[in-house]
Amino acid sequence: ISTPTHWSKLDPKTMKVNDLRKELESRALSSKGLKSQLIARLTKQLKVEE
């Protein structure tokens, strides 16, 4: 399991699906679903981290 990238360095809308999945997995979140779902899930988590 990798260390999550700091929230300020991430822009989920421009990330590739593989990168989105890695970030979600490093935060112990589900990495299953469509790209739009991955973006929404990661965006929501990054707002919590701010």
Rank of each mutant, 00 (worst) to 15 (best):
I1A: 14
I1N: 05
I1K: 06
I1W: 04
I1L: 05
S2I: 15
S2Q: 11
S2C: 13
S2N: 15
S2R: 12
T3Y: 15
T3G: 10
T3C: 12
T3M: 13
T3W: 06
T3S: 09
T3D: 08
P4H: 07
P4N: 09
P4W: 08
P4E: 11
P4F: 10
P4L: 11
P4G: 15
T5F: 01
T5V: 10
T5K: 09
T5M: 11
T5H: 06
T5D: 02
T5A: 13
T5Y: 04
H6M: 12
H6I: 13
H6Y: 12
H6S: 11
H6N: 14
H6E: 14
H6L: 14
H6T: 11
W7P: 10
W7D: 07
W7K: 08
S8F: 05
S8H: 10
S8R: 07
S8G: 12
K9D: 10
K9V: 09
K9L: 11
K9E: 11
K9A: 12
K9S: 08
K9G: 08
K9Q: 14
K9I: 06
L10S: 03
L10N: 03
L10A: 04
L10Y: 02
L10E: 02
L10Q: 03
L10D: 02
L10W: 00
L10C: 05
D11Y: 12
D11V: 12
D11S: 14
D11I: 14
D11R: 15
D11N: 14
D11E: 14
D11H: 14
D11W: 09
P12M: 08
P12L: 07
P12K: 01
P12I: 05
P12C: 06
P12N: 00
P12F: 02
P12Y: 02
P12A: 08
P12W: 04
K13L: 06
K13V: 12
K13R: 06
K13W: 04
K13D: 08
K13I: 11
K13A: 10
T14C: 10
T14H: 15
T14L: 09
T14D: 11
T14S: 13
T14Q: 12
T14K: 15
M15Y: 00
M15K: 02
M15I: 02
M15R: 02
M15L: 07
M15Q: 02
K16I: 09
K16H: 14
V17F: 11
V17I: 13
N18I: 15
N18C: 14
N18E: 14
N18L: 15
N18M: 14
N18F: 11
N18Q: 15
N18Y: 12
D19L: 13
D19W: 09
D19K: 05
D19I: 12
D19Q: 14
D19P: 05
D19V: 07
L20M: 09
L20I: 15
L20F: 02
R21Y: 06
R21H: 07
R21P: 02
R21T: 08
K22W: 07
K22T: 08
K22S: 13
K22F: 08
K22G: 06
E23C: 02
E23G: 00
E23R: 00
E23H: 04
E23F: 02
E23D: 00
E23L: 00
E23N: 03
E23V: 00
E23S: 03
L24Y: 00
L24M: 02
L24K: 01
L24Q: 01
L24W: 00
L24S: 01
E25Q: 10
E25C: 02
E25P: 00
E25L: 07
E25V: 08
E25I: 05
S26H: 14
S26E: 13
S26N: 13
R27W: 00
R27G: 02
R27L: 01
R27Y: 00
A28G: 15
A28W: 11
A28T: 15
A28Q: 15
A28S: 15
A28C: 14
A28E: 14
L29R: 06
L29G: 01
L29Y: 04
L29D: 02
L29P: 01
L29H: 05
S30E: 11
S30L: 07
S30M: 11
S30H: 08
S30W: 05
S30P: 14
S30Q: 08
S30K: 14
S30F: 04
S31D: 08
S31M: 11
S31N: 10
S31F: 10
S31T: 11
S31E: 09
S31P: 11
S31Y: 09
S31Q: 15
K32P: 01
K32W: 10
K32I: 07
K32L: 11
K32H: 11
K32M: 09
G33A: 01
G33W: 00
G33S: 00
G33V: 00
G33I: 00
G33Y: 00
G33D: 03
L34H: 12
L34G: 08
L34F: 07
L34S: 12
L34P: 13
L34M: 11
L34W: 08
L34T: 11
K35I: 06
K35E: 10
K35C: 04
K35Y: 05
K35L: 06
K35W: 04
K35D: 06
S36F: 07
S36P: 13
S36I: 10
S36E: 08
S36V: 10
S36M: 07
Q37G: 06
Q37N: 07
L38I: 05
L38A: 03
L38T: 02
L38C: 04
L38Q: 04
L38D: 05
L38G: 03
I39K: 13
I39Y: 05
I39P: 04
I39D: 05
I39A: 08
I39H: 05
I39E: 10
A40G: 13
A40W: 11
A40Q: 12
A40R: 13
A40N: 11
A40H: 15
A40I: 07
R41I: 04
R41Q: 04
R41V: 04
R41A: 04
R41Y: 04
L42Q: 03
L42P: 04
L42F: 03
L42W: 00
L42G: 03
L42N: 03
L42T: 03
L42S: 03
T43S: 12
T43D: 10
T43F: 11
T43W: 07
T43A: 13
T43E: 09
T43V: 11
T43G: 08
T43M: 10
K44S: 07
K44N: 10
K44H: 06
K44Q: 06
K44M: 04
Q45P: 01
Q45W: 06
Q45V: 06
Q45K: 13
Q45A: 12
Q45S: 08
Q45C: 12
L46K: 04
L46R: 03
L46W: 01
L46F: 04
L46H: 01
K47W: 05
K47G: 09
K47S: 10
K47E: 06
K47H: 06
K47L: 08
V48I: 14
V48D: 09
V48Q: 11
V48T: 10
V48R: 12
V48L: 11
V48Y: 07
E49C: 03
E49N: 00
E49T: 01
E49A: 01
E49G: 00
E49S: 01
E49I: 00
E49Q: 03
E50H: 13
E50A: 06
E50S: 07
